[in-house]
Write a protein that binds this DNA or RNA. Structure first.
Lengths: 335, 335
DNA sequence: TTGTAGGCGTTATCAG
DNA sequence: CTGATAACGCCTACAA
């Protein structure tokens, strides 16, 4: 079933049908009704690809994620919500995974797929692989989130990491913590460097001294967090409070604490990052810094849309992390 | 940059270029090399939509999910892995959400989108909304997973719920549990009915009596599980062991237990369903029944591919749930 | 206001 | 083996 078939049945030309479909209002209401009736009757829907071809617009955007962190709900939710908001705006989304699991040369694969489908813009939400992907020889608008420095021609949704860390550190300092540790993700990831920097700055602002020995660099995964916490606990003088680069690492840390008979919120203060739903259900409920995949995906899509539509007045898009107090912190405990 | 431009530069006709791109091996190697060179040089990639139009094949499949259960990692992983395996096979995937959050009439919206993009097949992985979506006036192959009865013309990836429940129940019975409870999702969902049936059968097989009063019907969400467990605990004679319809509900249940000073694996036996990564990290580690989104997505895609390609020898696709023993069970405790 | 003709980038069918 | 030529389904001047 196509536009010509509809035209035949409605006894008009196919251009009239096209006009009706595209709501061109110069068309005679009576003809329009006749066409609509036929469309309804046969359940016709225009062919998206033919339209894209004729109009020269694919109505598709690309989304590049990394998903290196085995089973972190954060990334799957990024996809979920990005897809949602895109669909609401009449866009399709092409998801590409920039990791080695799918292909040895992810950059090329991504680039090819994006180019073939004529995406109108690309959001790169890898939180750390932006730099490698910047080699992309691509000619469409591009959006990052939380890139550490503004790249030429790339829109960046700024992430205010400091706001959350500031309140978190303040909270710990008020409790009297002197030995504050940090479970960092691998610093090869730019967003991990950025988080680390934010923490350092927050410490400085709070007038707290920062001991490099209390930083464990580990995988930003469940197991990575568990290992990292073990490293910190094995220190001659372990920290009395620990912040984590993300929630899954914090949950892993919780596991290690439990295995040593220690309790967060009692023996040691623990703070996560992301605010996954699971935080509310951990025992104790995990205090964390909110970094909502839903909101970030939304902001990124909005930024992308503005770039695609070449909007004059660009919104000032910034996501502000927020400290969320629950039960996993406490005053320092004598060793 | 298009096929004609390449043709011009390689001094051949555009048909020859097309042949080279499509690896038609009747083309003169020298010409082929010349064309390849130009393609490399200008970084040309064929236009996917034009191809789809000309070939009459979209190379796109639809995926319908429900995602009614706020922030259940299970569903986002279904999307993630389905997308992955589809891309590996050269397919694009069109994700549609069949829930009210996006639109009052999800069925129509899904149907329209799927039809417009000319999907070659549709996988409906909602685990309970299949029936409502069956009204779909659609003419392409369709795949379900775990539908409770085989529908005409629809391929169904069978889910063996019993295998997991059988071992779980056996495990509890061996511990000596007499009062086994169940936290069910709303029985309006077919997969919830199926799970419930599987449990009943497993109980029967184990020679255990099944008390209907020990079943709480709740939302299959984090908070739903928490509430359901509260209901069970408020019973005059609460169950000594509880199975759950999924892990997030089990985690919610864990929360309720903790708030009443009870411990799973000590005061009451608790068993989840899904085997989310988080299970390993709960305190105690959650014993559960494995229902892997990765494998199920993979099987569903394979089934879909077979339908699309009209494969003669259909694989016998069945997913077998599996009991995973961890730490959240124990012998019944005197009240 | 409506219809005709041409084009979007590709594949496919023919002659040559 | 190659190259015109005609689809694929739609949009859009331009002409009527």
């Amino acid at each position: 079933m196509n536009i010509r078939e509809i035209a035949k049945r409605a006894r008009v030309s196919h251009s009239t049908v096209s006009r009706v479909i595209n709501q061109v209002d110069t068309v005679d209401p009576r003809l329009a009704r006749r066409v609509q009736a036929v469309i309804q009757e046969v359940g016709y829907r225009p062919n998206f690809q033919a339209r894209a071809l004729a109009r020269g617009r694919s109505h598709t955007v690309g989304l590049i994620v990394s998903e290196l962190s085995g089973g972190n709900p954060f990334f799957s939710e990024i996809i979920l919500y990005f897809e949602r908001v895109a669909v609401e705006h009449g866009y399709e989304v092409l998801v590409s995974f920039a990791d080695k699991e799918t292909h040895p040369d992810p950059v090329t694969v991504c680039a090819s797929r994006m180019q073939e489908r004529q995406v109108e813009g690309i959001a790169t939400l890898t939180f750390g692989m932006e730099e490698q992907l910047a080699k992309f020889p691509i000619s469409v608008p591009m959006v990052y989130a939380g890139a550490d420095h503004d790249l030429q021609g790339v829109r960046n949704v700024r992430i205010n990491y400091l706001s959350g860390f500031r309140d978190a550190v303040k909270h710990l300092v008020e409790f009297g913590h002197q030995r504050i540790g940090y479970l960092s993700g691998q610093l090869g990831w730019s967003s991990m460097r950025t988080r680390f920097e934010a923490l350092r700055k927050a410490m400085k602002l709070a007038g707290a001294s920062f001991d490099k020995d209390l930083v464990a660099e580990c995988d930003h995964t469940w197991d990575g967090g568990a290992q990292g916490m073990a490293t910190l606990l094995n220190l001659p003088k372990p920290p009395t409070a620990v912040l984590c680069c993300n929630d899954v690492a914090a949950v892993g840390a919780l596991k290690t604490l439990a295995s040593r008979g220690l309790q967060a919120g009692k023996d040691v203060a623990l703070i996560g990052f992301d605010d996954l739903t699971i935080c509310r259900f951990m025992q104790p409920a995990l205090t964390t810094i909110q970094f909502s995949p839903r909101e970030i995906a939304g902001l990124a899509f909005r930024a992308l849309l503005e770039e695609i539509q070449a909007t004059k007045e660009k919104s000032n898009l910034e996501y502000k992390t927020k400290f969320v107090l629950r039960e996993s912190t406490c005053a320092p405990r004598a060793q």
